[in-house]
């Protein structure tokens, strides 16, 4: 995983709304934009605009943390943990090891 990819993962995770979207997609995969918005409104009261949620999803998708597939004629979103694991292997893990200074 190169620095650009690492940046995209950490930037995508550096926002509470996007982390909340990941939590919801973990609980229930294969959600359309409409469902993600409906859940957001139900949980957070007024919630975010559809445009705002679309932008958050785009960032998560560019980081590889959200996978988009078609179910019939509807685009559905799921959480993809792979890049998070790669970021852990590429950077976080070595910083957590005791006694190493690199």
């Amino acid at each position: 995983m190169n620095d650009d990819e690492l940046d995209r993962v950490f930037k995508a995770l550096g926002d509470p709304t996007r982390r909340r979207i990941i939590d919801r997609l973990r609980e229930r995969p294969n959600q359309s934009l409409f469902e993600i918005c409906a859940a957001s409104h139900a949980e957070d009261g007024a919630g975010l605009s559809r445009q705002a949620i679309t932008q958050h999803l785009d960032m998560l998708q560019r980081a590889g943390l959200v996978r988009v597939e078609w179910s019939g004629r509807t685009r559905i979103h799921s959480f993809e943990p792979g890049p998070m694991r790669e970021a852990f292997d590429a950077w976080l893990r070595s910083r957590l090891q005791k006694g190493k200074r690199r």
Partner: peptide, 10 residues
């Protein structure tokens, strides 16, 4: 219609 269905919007 296609765009609404793509985003799952009724």
């Amino acid at each position: 219609k296609t765009a609404l269905v793509a985003d799952g919007i009724p």
